[in-house]
């Protein structure tokens, strides 16, 4: 890190604060019944988690999270709400012990699995010993962009990324063709059936 001397502490603080905000939003989403509010809160969740990804230096993941989570999926959820009701069904609050135990057990297993992970930035870890060092050494002179992930995605594996883009594009095209646009779309036909309401 080339920042000032408190940068490590700043990163730790930012991680704690952003994860705390994410926790609050997630609890609120689980508790709420108004679907509009839940859509808004899920958009907020995506924005905050995208910020957290930026703080963790995973810029490309953050980018996808902001574009898909905060942008597209908010619009898609709102569009889906045109076809359903506005509020979720109220559920009777009963304390379920088995799902809680399953969640706690899974969390404990995951925490136990992190013990075997190599330390952060360990030069002897498998991620840093094989092809990764090659990318790190050759990116500055071959590609010349500051972010090595960008160089790998857009240049070294450029055809792979192009193929992924083609797959996503054709999937979106198929969905649009199935659901339709404008007057002939699914939501418009349902709106006509309800006599123009909603």
């Amino acid at each position: 890190m080339t920042g000032y001397e408190g940068a490590d502490l700043a990163i730790a603080l930012i991680n704690v604060v952003l994860l705390g905000l994410l926790f609050v939003v997630a609890i609120a989403i689980a508790r709420m019944r108004s679907l509009f509010a839940i859509v808004m809160l899920s958009s907020i969740y995506s924005l905050i988690s995208a910020t957290w990804f930026v703080a963790l230096d995973a810029v490309d993941v953050a980018f996808t999270e902001a574009a898909v989570g905060a942008g597209i999926s908010t619009a898609l959820l709102l569009g889906a709400m045109l076809l359903t009701s506005r509020t979720a069904k109220p559920e009777p609050r009963k304390f379920a012990i088995v799902p809680l135990l399953v969640c706690i057990a899974t969390g404990l297993i995951l925490v136990y699995a992190t013990i075997d992970l190599p330390a952060f930035g360990d030069p002897d870890s498998p991620a840093n010993t094989y092809v990764g060092t090659d990318y790190i050494e050759r990116t500055p002179e071959e590609i010349g962009v500051p972010n090595i992930v960008t160089a790998v995605l857009a240049s070294y594996r450029g055809f792979d990324t192009l193929g992924e883009t083609g797959v996503v594009f054709s999937a979106a095209l198929a969905v649009i063709l199935l659901l339709g646009f404008g007057e002939r779309s699914l939501s418009a036909s349902i709106g006509r059936r309800k006599g123009g309401k909603e």
Binding site: T2, G3, A7, T51
Partner: peptide
């Protein structure tokens, strides 16, 4: 995010 870039020196 803009401020964070300056905090982290990037």
């Amino acid at each position: 995010i803009g401020v964070l870039g300056f905090v982290l020196g990037r």
